[in-house]
């Protein structure tokens, strides 16, 4: 499934211009990205939470060459699925 498929489904439910629906779908993901960029967490009830975590710098090793490298401090994001989403994944056609 791609964004185009998501737009298609949303378009079938609201039934306005597909171009407008596509804009709203884009805006949804853009708003989530903006919030995360600001270091906010995004909680979508019934779906899951997107959170940003700060990672301290640490010593790492290139697994291919064995060479030691420093991994700088950085921000990463994590997604934690809600129980509803977890259940949906486990009940569906396994």
């Amino acid at each position: 499934m791609t964004k185009a498929d998501l737009v298609e489904v949303a378009f079938e439910t609201v039934g306005c211009s597909k171009k407008d629906v596509a804009e709203v779908v884009d805006q949804v993901f853009e708003s989530i990205k903006c919030a995360l960029e600001k270091g906010d967490k995004v909680k979508v009830s019934g779906f899951g939470n997107f959170t940003v975590r700060h990672k301290k710098a640490r010593r790492g090793r290139n697994p291919q060459t064995g060479e030691e490298i420093t991994i700088g401090e950085r921000n990463v994001m994590t997604f934690k699925a809600s129980q509803i989403l977890k259940d949906a994944v486990n009940s569906g056609g396994s």
């Binding site: 791609t2 964004k3 498929d5 998501l6 779908v25 949804v28 990205k33 009940s91 569906g92």
Partner: peptide, 29 residues
């Protein structure tokens, strides 16, 4: 109201699609 419907549909579609074991790819996200 429209936006509410779209947002719900969006996350519902992703949930259902995952339930079918599919992969959902959103460029840039």
């Amino acid at each position: 109201r429209d936006v509410e419907v779209i947002v719900s549909t969006l996350f519902k579609s992703i949930t259902e699609s995952l339930g079918r074991g599919e992969k959902i790819e959103i460029r840039g996200f």
